[in-house]
Design a binder for these strands. Sequence first.
DNA 1: AAACTGACTGAGCGCTCAGTCAGTTTTTTT
DNA 2: AAAAAAACTGACTGAGCGCTCAGTCAGTTT
Lengths: 193, 193
Amino acid sequence: MSKKKEAILKAATVLFANKGFADTSMQELSKLTGAAEGTIFYHFKNKERLLLSILIETRGDVVEAFDRFFEGRSCRDGLHMVEEVVSFYLYLAGLMEFQFLLLQRHFLYRFAEENAEFRENLEAIYNCIADFFEKAIAMGQADGSIGDVHPRKTALILFTMVDGIVRFKNFNLYDAGALFNDLIDSCRRMLKP
Amino acid sequence: MSKKKEAILKAATVLFANKGFADTSMQELSKLTGAAEGTIFYHFKNKERLLLSILIETRGDVVEAFDRFFEGRSCRDGLHMVEEVVSFYLYLAGLMEFQFLLLQRHFLYRFAEENAEFRENLEAIYNCIADFFEKAIAMGQADGSIGDVHPRKTALILFTMVDGIVRFKNFNLYDAGALFNDLIDSCRRMLKP
DNA sequence: AAACTGACTGAGCGCTCAGTCAGTTTTTTT
DNA sequence: AAAAAAACTGACTGAGCGCTCAGTCAGTTT
């Protein structure tokens, strides 16, 4: 992949995440990357395909990060693994700040309504994460560290919690870091047998 | 307030919530309301002020709804009141669907960064809701139905949960209704002494 | 009957936008 | 070194945008 193409993808991720899709102009993107406007359209046939490319890249990054982190990892018990998934999600949301911010923006879900490629990639990301929560809960129920809750639904509720925390951080409403300990505590109370 | 002005406010709420700020044109708003474009600018000095008017109206509606619901209401105990706040939030998110969707959109928080009026109204809405959660938790700790948790932080975590559920619903990711019982259950487990 | 008011109109202005294209430079292949 | 392919350029276009403004009109006041 050419240097310019990479620069365009990187800068567009930040701009789309921070300013939104409609409020980011190709002109601005051109200036920021040093690439001519024509170059952007040489690499991406239009603005929407540029966004899709970012989403596909993000999917790859997120799925790979989760798989890497948990492959071969043997946790003390299921409850402990839930805590690790929560922590890792929050860690990743800091590491891949702009990609996570992008995933919370509404325009992505508007595209997903009409474009199957958007839908598939979004679903892949969400399923990957929800599956990790569910696996951890199921493991906890097998080893007795987690009580009798509905695995999938509880996984979604946990997902909702950490995602909401990231949202509060992104909107500058509250300091997510200050809530971390209480969040982990809440999870433990929620899940214990 | 003139009929046209009311129609503009109402239609703009739906459009801004569904399509975003930048993707909603005054032309579209004009066609939908039957008001000439000039009429919109007669009532609201510009697009941003129109959005602010909607936010101010939303603040009034949300705060009034919460105050009305809980004034004079005597709950069995604090834990029960937490459940009622959760339920009422979700009920209101259905009743005032577009206003709640609007509150989750990023452009509002971008305006809030530079415009104190936006910031004040957003804070008023969030503080009102978080306060109700906190009050319920404090009550529960007084009557023994809720364990020893940090009231404000736990209030924020609860808020995060219900807000996240609404977000999942808005994005058509999962059916929020199907999670309701498990959500209430999780809250109970989280809070019990 | 004259003066005034506030709600409303829609053509039109200045400007920005996504996307195009004819042409140039750089890289790879032969 | 020549030819071919890939990467890149930036001036340009037409559509659409927010917003303005001169003007209409029904109703009220003087």
